[in-house]
């Protein structure tokens, strides 16, 4: 009897049932269930966690990262979530240094890079499709993105309970990127000191970054000076990326 129940439980998972979110059974369920239940915020590595009142990234929100350390900070923000099993999509950052992501503590097996077309509508459609499967998205919006499309994307982010991190890339690499997103949190990360580098000698060993979090979902601005890469980021071994051993 118990075996039969088990078989009945396993069987449906063998067949491939295509699930299309946003239509059919899922929508019915969602309307019947009402608003999505509140899920715990995504974890954030230790030195950055204290900058968020909730102790992590609240799902469904848009975070704008600016300043000269924007990309490094965005990677650091998504690191703990990927180690806990979330997937990270990096959209329109074709030159991402994976080594920097690993140094920030991102689980490299759960990074996917996407290069959607730059036309506003196609770009938003692609990112919206990625939202279905990814908990964290780091995006560099193209200049052509319209505010209307950005709003639609944010609605999708809220419905799917993911986190959208909009980064500002240095002006010298990309054509001026516009931030048309109305962000819930603004994270400004500016390097205040580079240590190690001199007039010809040594090399950069560490950067000290001042991170300031403010925005409409933040009651009072919080500020903290951290060093990148944080020593705690990559040394912490993920419990999930290594499967349990047979012994």
């Amino acid at each position: 009897m118990r075996l039969r129940r088990l078989v009945a439980y396993v069987r449906p998972s063998l067949g491939r049932t295509p699930v299309r979110y946003g239509e059919g059974v899922t929508t019915d369920l969602r309307t019947r269930l009402g608003a999505p239940t509140l899920r715990a915020p995504l974890p954030v590595v230790d030195p950055l966690a204290s900058l968020f009142a909730e102790g992590g990234l609240v799902r469904g929100r848009t975070v704008a990262c600016t300043g000269d350390a924007a990309l490094s900070t965005a990677l650091a923000l998504s690191a703990a979530a990927t180690r806990a099993g979330s997937w990270l999509a990096v959209v329109d950052v074709p030159n991402l240094g994976i080594a920097a992501a690993i140094e920030a503590g991102v689980a490299v097996e759960r990074i996917v890079l996407a290069q959607p077309p730059h036309a506003s509508r196609e770009w938003v459609t692609t990112v919206a499709a990625l939202v279905e499967g990814f908990d964290v998205l780091i995006v560099a919006p193209p200049a052509s993105l319209s505010a209307n499309d950005a709003r639609r994307l944010q609605t999708r982010i809220m419905a799917r309970q993911s986190v959208l991190i909009v980064v500002e890339l240095p002006a010298l690499t990309s054509s001026a990127s516009s931030n048309v997103f109305s962000s819930d949190l603004d994270v400004r990360a500016d390097t205040v000191a580079w240590s190690g580098i001199e007039q010809g000698g040594s090399h950069i060993t560490q950067r000290t970054v001042q991170v300031r979090v403010e925005g409409r979902r933040c009651a009072s601005p919080r500020e903290r000076t951290i060093t990148l890469p944080c020593p705690t980021m990559s040394s912490a071994q993920s419990p999930c990326s290594t499967p349990p051993r047979v012994s």
Partner: peptide, 17 residues
């Protein structure tokens, strides 16, 4: 999600390191 995007924009547009 990745397969869907690959169908939309071509498999070259979605990559993994």
């Amino acid at each position: 999600a990745v397969r869907r995007v690959a169908d939309m924009n071509g498999a070259d547009s979605v990559t993994v390191p």
